[in-house]
Design a protein around this nucleic acid. Structure first.
Lengths: 232, 232
DNA sequence: TTTTTAATTTAGATGAGTCTAAACAATCGC
DNA sequence: GCGATTGTTTAGACTCATCTAAATTAAAAA
């Protein structure tokens, strides 16, 4: 059995790998988990012994197949729980993260299955993030481009809002920026400040760091984009 | 913050106190939690330092007021979770225990409240055990007498079936003994073997140790027994 | 290329929760 | 009432996840 701590490290490596491809640095893991670098080093060593990551000294770590499987399972738990908390228990989607972060390590497979069934096998969580099954298709995980990649005049639809900081999420939610919202990029200031217009005409300004967190898609693109022509 | 382990010890002391009044022995705690006696000694010492139990060397431990508050909170979590798993997620009442035992230490107050609300502030869990609010009335906690206290010819109604061993629970459930079942005590053999007759005419034999676990009441007694005449 | 800086790892310590073996206290049987 | 049995505590060690301080390596600057 894997400890909750280990699951957290594996999940973190997974998320950082997705962010910027390649190997993940010790300090990135440490920072993300709020521990010191030596702690991360030693945990990553343990993970390597268990065959969950591959490491080269001073270079960084990347998940093995097995590690990826674990990460995906944890992320599935997390996103199912978020969905459940929001849909069944009336949580606001901006406040589900912490609860899910704790519970994800303690629910059984039985629980996972029953929740998934009760929710009708959902494919995305309240943030718009895909809920993996056995294999989380990396393409799917990367779905949407960062809002920060867009320029003035672009019209986009919010696909996902990453759930890092609850305050950030709350703010965006209050301003009306949630999955499904249509945005027009009004202005991209040279200080990396984005101004977008909402359907109701209101405008919101965001620093690039926040615009990074908002993943959007072309409003004309097929919602459930089968990559290439398997007709349905 | 109290660790999950500590919560487990406090809960265990509470449950053992309820069983047989007075101080709780180190070995009883150890056995219940599947640890060795020295481990229990040292944990109970820690609990005493934190003011959750009172101890006299070689005598045993009893909860302080504060310890009792903690125990009741944990038990509330446990029983709410059991109820939730059974009612909302379709678990059988014989299999809710383990899941609740893990999750009880990791849910927030927010979660507790939302679950309670969703369930309509239930007063008993699927085993028939009362779900405490802030204060678990000890009288209520002791509601029902042990089936083993009854003699031949007595007719009783099952109030609660304690959730110690899932196998035991499964067995009783299959035989038709669940909260609400009416039983007639057919025979009390001198080997401490109880035979009861169910409403459908079937009879079931049980050792006294199991009959202990089944709490029953007089079928004529008021269901929601207001102790003394507050008319409704 | 050499030096400086930044990141990473090693070394050693700590606290929590557990264990085994041994010492000690309480109780039970005669 | 005293020895034998049982239960409890002490002593000492171990693992896990963490820390700080120091050493080492890699990368960036000069």
């Amino acid at each position: 059995m894997l400890s909750a701590k280990m699951e957290d490290y594996v999940k973190t490596v997974y998320e950082l790998q997705r962010g910027s491809d390649g190997a993940v640095s010790t300090s990135a893991v440490a920072e993300r988990l709020g521990v010191t670098a030596p702690t991360a080093t030693s945990m990553l060593e343990t993970l390597a012994e268990r065959g969950l990551v591959e490491r080269e000294k001073y270079k960084g770590a990347r998940l093995t197949r097995e590690g990826e499987t674990v990460a995906i399972e944890v992320i599935r738990h997390h996103r199912l729980l978020e969905t459940y908390l929001a849909e069944q228990l009336g949580y606001d989607w901006t406040e589900v993260h912490d609860e899910a972060d704790r519970l994800e390590h303690h629910i059984s497979e039985e629980f996972e299955e029953r929740v998934a069934e009760k929710l009708g096998e959902p494919e995305v969580d309240p943030h718009g993030d895909p809920i993996p099954t056995e294999t989380l298709d990396p393409v799917d995980e990367r779905r949407g481009e960062a809002l920060s990649e867009h320029g003035e005049g672009d019209t986009v639809v919010v696909e996902r809002v990453r759930d890092r900081d609850p305050e950030e999420l709350s703010y965006l939610s209050e301003e009306g920026i949630t999955p499904g919202t249509r945005l027009v990029v009004e202005e991209v200031a040279p200080i990396d400040m984005f101004t977008v217009r909402l359907p109701d005409g209101e405008t919101v300004s965001l620093p690039a760091s926040v615009a990074e967190v908002i993943r959007v898609s072309d409003p004309d693109a097929a919602e459930n984009g089968e990559p290439d022509g398997v007709m349905g």
